[in-house]
């Protein structure tokens, strides 16, 4: 998957629509950097019906745990057993070997609310500056 051709959520998942119209889901390079070493992922079973922005799994890193949200509504048609068995491949290769699952989507209109690559980059930039504001506020509190 080419990062530039993916769509993104505010929760740092990426979505790539393959040639069959199936959505491949993973997490972004930024997410991987924030989480650090990932040691477990929990994904829904194949056949599960999911709704857009529902929490559908968890990502456990050494230092922290994060929820995984479904970027789209539809049916889970495949999960990446290799990433479940060896989550370090997510850290090494978040856009290819480290994909999470595939969703057969029901409403293409949902794609409209996702970020394009450029929009996501902009969103990351805003987040960074917000984080800086937050930390300066914290400093004032002390």
């Amino acid at each position: 998957m080419v990062p530039e051709e993916c769509l993104y959520t505010k929760e740092h998942e990426w979505v790539f629509i393959d040639e069959d119209g199936v959505a491949v889901i993973g997490i972004s390079e930024y997410a991987v950097g924030e989480l650090g070493d990932i040691v477990y992922i929990e994904l829904p079973e194949v056949g599960t019906q999911v709704k857009q922005m529902d929490p559908i799994g968890t990502i456990e890193a050494v230092k922290t745990v994060a929820d995984l949200f479904s970027p789209l509504s539809g049916e889970i048609v495949e999960i990446n057993d290799e990433a479940v068995g060896a989550p370090e491949i997510i850290n090494k290769d978040p856009y290819e070997a480290g994909w999470f699952m595939k969703i057969k989507i029901v409403d293409k209109g949902e794609l409209d609310v996702l970020f394009s690559h450029d929009e996501y980059q902009e969103f990351l930039g805003e987040q960074e500056s917000e984080n800086e504001d937050e930390s300066s506020e914290e400093e004032e509190d002390q």
Binding site: G36, D37, V62, K63, E88, N91, S135, E138
Partner: peptide
Amino acid sequence: VEFAGYLMPVSFDGII
């Protein structure tokens, strides 16, 4: 990261 009032490195190459 901030830890105990200090700016400290939490990781370089990854914790593991």
